[in-house]
Each structure stands twice: as C-alpha cells, then as structure tokens.
Amino acid sequence: MISVFILFLKIFAGMPLLALVVLLALLFEGADRIVNAKMQRRYGPPLLQPVYDILKLMGKENIVPRRASRFFFMTAPWLTLVTTLMIFLYIPTGSFPPVLGTEGDMVLIVYLLAMSGLLMAVGGFASGNPLASIGAGREITLMMSYEFPLAIVVCTMAWVAHRLGLPGEPFSLEPFAAVSVWKAVGKTGVMGLICLFLSLVLVVPGELGKGPMDIPEAKTEILDGLIIEYSGVNLALFKLTFALRSFAMATFMTALFVPVSLGSLLGVSGFIVAIFDFIFFWAKVLVVQMIFVTLMRTMFGRLKIWQASQFYIMKVAGLSIAGMILLSIDVIAR
C-alpha cells in the first residue's frame, strides 16, 4: 500500500519534469527546423512555430472518417502521447536520478518506444484509409527491423555495466550517468562501444521516422501515410508525439553514451552544481539532437521500405553484434 502511495508521489513529482520536457521538445523541434532550413539556405520558421502549430491544432475540430474504427482512431493519439511521455520518467537528467528509477529500467524504455510506435500504427490502421494502412504497415515492418539492433545495444550496455560493477541497479540508466562508460572499458571495449553507438545512431532515424527512414510518413509517396486522416486535437497530439520521440531518442543517447557532466569535469559537487548539470544535460541533448537527428534527416533522401529493412537486419544488426562481441571480449578478458 505504501509503495503504491510512494509511486503516486513520484509521478506527482514528475509532473513539472514532464511539463518541462514537453516545452523543451517543442523548442528543440523549432531549433531542428531552423537549423534544417539554414542548411538548405532558407530562413525557416520562428523558433516557437511548433508551439503555435500545436496551439492552433488544439483549437480545431476532430474529424473522424466514416470508414474509421472510431474507438481506436480516437484513443491511439492519447495513448501514444502518454507512452512517449512516460519514457522521460525513466531517464536520468544530469545528476538527478530518474523519477521512477527503481520501478523500471532500460528494457522498459525500449518497450515504451516500441509501444508508442505500435500505437501510432494502430491509429493508422484504424483510419480506414488505404494510404494510412500502407503507412502503418511500413511502420510495423520498420519496427521489426530496427528493434533487433536496438535490443542488442541495450542488453550489451546493461550487461557491461553489471559486469564492470558500475554503481546502481542492473539494467538501469543510472550507472551511465554516474560513471563514464568510455573510461571504464579498455581499447577493445572502446571499439565495441563505437560500434554500438553507431548502431544506435542508425537506429534513431528509423525510430523517429525521419531522415532516410521517413518511410511510414513519406510525404511524396503516401501523403504523410500514418497521419493522413488525422486532424485537430488528434493531429496536435501526434505532432507532439513526434517531437517528443525525437527528444526522447536524443535524451536516451545522451544518457547512455555522452556521460560528460559539469560536476565530474570540474571535480565539484553540491546542489548548485546539480542544477547547472541539469541545464548542461539538456544542452548536450540539443547538440546530440542537432547532429544525429537534424543533420541526419537533412543529408539523406528516403529509402524504400525493403531497403531500410535490409539495411537494419543485415548491416546495423551486424554492426551491433560486432560491438557486442568486442565489448564482451574486453569485459571477460579483464
């Protein structure tokens, strides 16, 4: 009974964090669009454009197509948003531990990411539009392809943290925030880590449906596929989810692979430093998102679904397995 109470307390405490996350996700989305535009020598929208978009769509009517399955069509956006938001309760921010650090771990994050993608596909299938069905089918295919390398990355990292005896629970993200995993392993291990990092970088566009993997939403092929029938509040929720997913992936990558913190750099600690660390963490996320989401989506065209699937199953999975083997050798040999 008491544990349930504590859980509720924690979720309540997480509310300000979630509000901050939503705001930051939209701001980063605006920054992403500006940088994308500048790279193409355009002016781009104002920084707050995603916020304006969401506010505008929130005031608009939901239109449900006649052929849609109403229940799933209306609930999918909400469930997607909630699942995506929950991810942030399990990611440590700067020196602060994750809000629900003891209730879930990295596997749950991967699960939540997959869940929100799946719910998006459910919304697409429920639209009753053939183009949305194609988009949803592509989303599922893509998910089946990138989940394997993603799972390898996550499991390997957790196992390494456990074997190296990093402080914190196994499979939790906390150890990676406290100790730099790059310093904890030897030379072979660093090579393995690079392989894993690259695999994660390549999984990101698939996870987000951006860059070379914007196949489920392909604008010039299936006219925004998944979300073709959505309008008004539902569309706003989907837009918010897309922004949050980009942000979540950038945060996840930062927490896992970019553990530099101000406190450890300067060798000091304390509450003020923790606050600065908190801000520094979001700055890191911004940099990671600009490089691995924005640049990535600007520099590539769109692949076809079978090409993307092949790419993940053959190449990225191979890369992640290579990373796993290299890391294992390093950890076992010591």
Partner: peptide
Amino acid sequence: TRIVPQLLKQLFSRVAT
C-alpha cells in the same frame, strides 16, 4: 556523403531566398 560539407558550408552562408 558528399553533401555534408556542402550543408555545413550552407549552414553558415547567407540565406538564398
């Protein structure tokens, strides 16, 4: 790819529109 230096160059050059 070949486009990356071009994109980075354009990021810091004048807006064309």
